[in-house]
Nucleic acid binder design. Sequence first.
DNA 1: CTCCAGTTGCAACACAAATGCATTTGCGTG
DNA 2: CACGCAAATGCATTTGTGTTGCAACTGGAG
Lengths: 151, 151
Amino acid sequence: MKDFESTAETLIRSTGDRVTGARVHVLAVLLGAGRALTHNEVEARLEPELGINRVTVYRVLEWLTQRNIAHKLSGEDRVWRFSVQEQGHGGQHPHFVCNACGRVLCLADSDESPKPRLPVGFQSTEMELTVKGLCDACNEHSRRTAARGKK
Amino acid sequence: MKDFESTAETLIRSTGDRVTGARVHVLAVLLGAGRALTHNEVEARLEPELGINRVTVYRVLEWLTQRNIAHKLSGEDRVWRFSVQEQGHGGQHPHFVCNACGRVLCLADSDESPKPRLPVGFQSTEMELTVKGLCDACNEHSRRTAARGKK
DNA sequence: CTCCAGTTGCAACACAAATGCATTTGCGTG
DNA sequence: CACGCAAATGCATTTGTGTTGCAACTGGAG
């Protein structure tokens, strides 16, 4: 955990902006998550005694996104999710969303880019590819239990 | 307009569920739109004298989605958008989102599907490809204002 | 140490969407 | 063709995510 905090501090310091407790702790949570987290998930993983405000978490996440340290993506449940920008991913990597537990994680970039044809006059700046399905845990779980309502 | 309503009625009747005014009118609006509409846009296009409630529009749109008549997708602004499921599109077609005006429309399917590699144990059921950029109108508009001098 | 722009906390707000419940309505049945 | 009832609707209220205005605080430069 402390490892993530020092990494977080280094990343934040490299932006030239202020190194504050909230920024370090929020980024450390994202670094330790290994997947995209919602604002609520980030808040829940912060030590309560730190006393970091809900709004501050929003603003830190927004700040991280602007500095290209984190990546902001919209899920199917109209909730923002944030993940640390891993090295080599230019922000164009595809994401996987689990239909059962809602987990979101980043996938390795595909070798080829699909590039659908656009109508005339249209201009593409970026592309987001989202693969939906079952993650390993939910896949295993659903295989074990025959019929069950989904979450 | 009336043409869309009769098409809508046929589609709704084919589900075996009830054919109600709200369902016919809402679906007719979607059929005539040619692009994905938000709940608000649908509501705005309904004749006010029909007196269709806001909540009813939500429920009809949800019902249309469940019956696979409409397609529900989430934009970057955390607002649901609904489009009629066109024939031949298995719900796998890519979408285009305009960064300026927020318009969403369906694109023709690409020749090949990219299929990024998934981690072990993961299972893919569907995929959503969203292309972001500027639509024809906004593209033209930004080109004109840029030529007029920078702001 | 002092200062102050950049941050944070707090409260109040904005807004899409969901829910509980009473009322209405489509449509199969007698 | 009237009747009955589950499905559908209208209305008020609630939920949950995210935003904003403003006062108080603080990191770090000097």
